[in-house]
């Protein structure tokens, strides 16, 4: 039960007004995303309707509502990366992983995300896997990086 995994989070905020967003952050930290089940649990504890909580959470880019993959692949489409072919890298990644930007592969191995600038413009175009930045990407190099991750797990 997920409830057991987040009830201490809720306990820490009991009786405090205005704690919905910190709770959502903690829950996401714990679960990696905000599950429907967790929101239903928060709803009961705070006596706020699920749709109101979802309304608040979905307003912020920081919250995600689907289970993320083991590895996060971010493709930069900021100005510098864009002019140096970032869109081609994104296309290649989408094709390679078989999911659109924002999606997660069915085996929950990879989540593909688009971002707008990491501040590594000198290396454009870049992709970031988990916390590692890879510069001067080409579709082929990006694919190699994915393969490395795939091999790592066997």
């Amino acid at each position: 039960m997920q409830e057991n995994r987040i009830d201490d989070v809720l306990a820490a905020f009991r009786g405090k007004q205005g704690s919905l967003i910190p709770i959502l952050q903690k829950v996401q930290e714990r679960l990696g995303f905000l599950s429907g089940e967790s929101i239903s649990f928060i709803s009961k504890a705070l006596r706020i309707s699920e749709s109101e909580i979802f309304g608040v959470a979905s307003f912020y880019a920081q919250f995600r509502f689907t289970k993320p993959g083991e590895h996060c692949v971010k493709v930069c489409l900021g100005t510098a990366c864009h002019v140096r072919g970032g869109a081609l890298i994104m296309d290649a990644m989408e094709r390679e992983l078989g999911v659109p930007a924002g999606g997660t592969t069915p085996d929950f191995k990879f989540t593909l995300e688009r971002v707008a600038c990491f501040g590594s413009c000198a290396l454009a175009p870049v992709i970031v896997t988990d916390k590692k930045v890879h510069g001067s990407m080409t579709p082929a190099k990006a694919k190699d990086i994915l393969d490395q991750y795939r091999r790592r797990q066997g």
């Binding site: 699920e50 749709s51 109101e52 979905s58 307003f59």
Partner: peptide
Amino acid sequence: GAIGLVWR
């Protein structure tokens, strides 16, 4: 509270 304003 069955519905809300969602996304942005």
